[in-house]
Nucleic acid binder design. Sequence first.
DNA 1: AGATCTAGCCGTCACGTCAT
DNA 2: ATGACGTGACGGCTAGATCT
Length: 281
Amino acid sequence: MWWHQHNLCFRHPIEEDYSSGDLEEKVATIAETDESAESEGVIDSYKRREILSRRPSYRKILNELSSDVPCVPKIEEEISEEEGTPPNIATMAVPTSIYQTSMGQYIAIAQSGTIQISNPGCDGVQGLQALTMTNSGAPPPGATIVRYAAQSADGTQHFFVPGSQVVIQDEETEFAPSHMAAATGDMPTYQIRAPTTGLPQGVVMAASPGSLHSPQQLAEEATRKRELRLMKNREAAKECRRRKKEYVKCLESRVAVLEVQNRKLIEELETLKNICSLKTD
DNA sequence: AGATCTAGCCGTCACGTCAT
DNA sequence: ATGACGTGACGGCTAGATCT
């Protein structure tokens, strides 16, 4: 596979990643026809899809690179799989679930119901922020208001918690009673609710699939599932793009390093040549 | 100033891979 | 077999640059 070779090669994306002869032939054919097709403004997207599939994840590729070259940083694995509990969380209450947000923050949900948020970039307890669950209040039915002692608020954040629920940062504290918003000052409010983004905020689908009977309920369930899938895919796409950027940056830095090495080797060669010519004279 | 181009980002779809 | 996940492709949107 091309990323196993120790020489860097940038190729048209359509050419990437195919080592089997059959596929290479296909790729070559497609790559050639691609140009002509593009000139005609016609691209066989079906064939292209066929060729473009089976590409390993950027994480895999980059980690392959990093195993070859120690200076290449590895892309972080999911904390639940490889990294384990972040150190600044491990020192606190024993969590039952740990999640990572798209902002890189860790959320630990303890058995007691306590939610802890930590910023991986911060040291020790500084990066850990406590959440207080206040289930008894005026918030909409089914939604749990979570007060989050944030140190800095930078836009809306969605956190995923067990049971296909979502923790949603409410910048305007629109679902918190005004007196609560006043009491929390600048602290943003968070809600835990079902990910029904297509439905009005605060509406929670309570029915389980097994208890659905009417066509309307089935339709609602289907909509809910679709919304959930879209939301997850949205997040996945963001993460994928982030990894891709990281991957490209890594390749660029490798190019820079290899160019320097190449220059040095050329200089060395010239020096040796000069020495040889002097000796022969 | 308005039109056009370009690059970058995002959401969605389709599809392959992997784990269960 | 099936669901979750990762990623390429595509189209829409936007901001900045360039052209007329």
